[in-house]
């Protein structure tokens, strides 16, 4: 990485959070790693700065690195529709405290993306208005895209069949728990 080729957006981020950011490049695609406390400020800077204008949130997703510490890396992919530029923002969070700030206050579209990341990895988004599972059933006990989760699942077909028939008979109970476990008091964004 040479300083001359670093895009403006990456440099702005590194300057805004001195000593905290780490930039990485792969085939012309840039990623900036930040502590999770800085992510919301960084997203706001990227969106609202008229020179950067990253106005579109492509995706919020997660990767699992069981051998590393902290274990999870949450990734935000942004596009500037006016400039045709892209950037990725990433933040790590540990397994014991898998919480990152929610981007819903900045992009309403982050709602379902974050629900999917929560559903698959168990990463919680502090400040999300309605953090429920979105793909798996509400009472599903595991997070299927974590590396330790077996490909073929944990329940046998017989158990699943019993579960399906039970729920089909009593639809009013089928919704499962209304919401994810409530975040700890200090967790919610103001």
């Amino acid at each position: 990485m040479t300083e001359t080729t670093t895009p403006v957006a990456v440099r702005r981020l590194l300057d805004a959070f001195p000593g905290e950011g780490k930039a990485a490049e792969f085939r012309g695609q840039w990623r900036v790693d930040l502590p999770r406390e800085r992510v919301l400020d960084a997203l706001r800077l990227l969106r609202d700065d008229p020179d950067l204008a990253f106005d579109f949130l492509n995706d919020v997703t997660c990767t699992d690195h069981p051998d590393e510490e902290p274990r999870f890396r949450v990734v935000w992919t942004l596009t500037s529709l006016s400039r045709g530029d892209r950037i990725r923002l990433a933040a790590r969070c540990p397994e014991e405290d898998p919480v990152v700030p929610s981007a819903v206050p900045l992009w309403a579209g982050a709602n379902w993306l974050e629900r999917e990341a929560y559903d698959m990895f168990g990463v919680r988004f502090a400040g999300h208005p309605d953090l429920r599972r979105i793909l798996m059933p509400g009472d599903f006990p595991s997070f299927p895209l974590r590396k330790e989760f077996p490909m073929e699942g944990e329940r046998s077909d017989r158990e699943w069949a019993r579960w399906v028939i039970e729920r089909a008979r009593r639809p009013e109970e089928a919704a499962g728990p209304a919401s994810a476990p409530a975040p700890a008091p200090g967790e919610r964004a103001p």
Binding site: L135, M136, P144, F149, P150, M151, E152, G153, E154, D157, R158, W160, A161, V164, I165, A168
Partner: peptide, 13 residues
């Protein structure tokens, strides 16, 4: 699809 969300044949239900 031998995977966690897919029922292995509808004759289970």
């Amino acid at each position: 699809f031998r995977s966690y969300p897919v029922m292995q044949g509808i004759d289970h239900i």
